[in-house]
Write a protein that binds this DNA or RNA. Sequence first.
DNA 1: ACCTGAACACCGTTCAAGT
DNA 2: ACCTGAACACCGTTCAAGT
Lengths: 210, 210
Amino acid sequence: MDNTTTQAPEPPEGLSSRDRILWAAASMLGEGAASSLSVRGVAARARVSTGSLRHHFPTQRDLMAAVLPLVYDLVLPVDSIKDSTIPARERLIAYLQNQIAPEGADLDLREAWLLAFDRYARTVPTPAVREEYLAIEREMRRRIEFALMVLEDEGALAAGETDGRARYLATVLNGLSVARAFPVDETFLQVELDVLGRAVDSLLDTVVAT
Amino acid sequence: MDNTTTQAPEPPEGLSSRDRILWAAASMLGEGAASSLSVRGVAARARVSTGSLRHHFPTQRDLMAAVLPLVYDLVLPVDSIKDSTIPARERLIAYLQNQIAPEGADLDLREAWLLAFDRYARTVPTPAVREEYLAIEREMRRRIEFALMVLEDEGALAAGETDGRARYLATVLNGLSVARAFPVDETFLQVELDVLGRAVDSLLDTVVAT
DNA sequence: ACCTGAACACCGTTCAAGT
DNA sequence: ACCTGAACACCGTTCAAGT
């Protein structure tokens, strides 16, 4: 392929090398599927050498780990479930996505799942450890139930079956979360939003059906 | 890396080039972790040239698409979805449940997830290993899509969006499957069926809404 | 510390040339 | 039709060398 003369956007002035790299990577991710994040591609757009890129981000995974939160924060509002200026559907989607990958904590989901496996699944857990895990699971459901009840109080969601609904959403979140610990293709951001949308719609549709 | 003298197994006698290639690819997949499917690696084990490999399988994706069904069908039959004596809803639920935990194979989901993590998520995957994982994911979606299309042909399911629906169901299955690797409470079987039921209903309801 | 760019060991794909 | 193997255009990572 001949990429020599494809006019690449220039990085904003006054940015550090590191920030130019992040800017370049983020802008390339934003352009979607076609352009994946290659070392040379990002380095060229950032106007730095591959060596400089590697100095700041020792592996491509490190680069992705630094860029993804930036991209997500652009796309997903921080808003709590109570911000009723946002339509219930979008609000619940954003809230659930935030449950998958909390913004503040810079935790790597891969890392998190590995730790969880080592602690709760690698060996037969003692009753105490088992309880600990079930408690964490309950807490996750509790957070989902909280969101559902806020929407119920608003009248955006038909009442009832909170427990079943929360368990259902928790399963979907679990599926999305564990998928992120594994390799993803270029479309995973859209896919994730589509899946969350379907899950949320399957609850909200009940309102219409009433 | 020095692979020159690692004694590779020889292909069975009397196989065509194409079948030697499939045999080589399947045996390398079976060996798991260390050896991923590279053009040169498969060609060498099959005792053919890269050009011959490309003649039979124009892309690596084509090769994976040909090999994976062979490997999976050893363990996981796909026919149960066609048994139209069972109502579509229950049939799809059973089919999906069987995708989570195949009956014949006595595979432990905890074990399976641990292996998957070690292979695809514990360390930074090479691009080849990454491709391998994505191909396995595609094969799982292909099996779900197959079931959806059977039901569409029957008229039990409104046509359309097969890809999105399959990705959605795959996420739910992923969530249920990974949950089984962790401690479960006493109600998990009912919860699992309820979750599957909700997922399936969210698709079948579309028929009613038409 | 930050940066450069060549070099290394891989990829998947293409293709002229053989049988 | 089937097959060969070189060549092409990539990849991510390493590293001696500069500032």
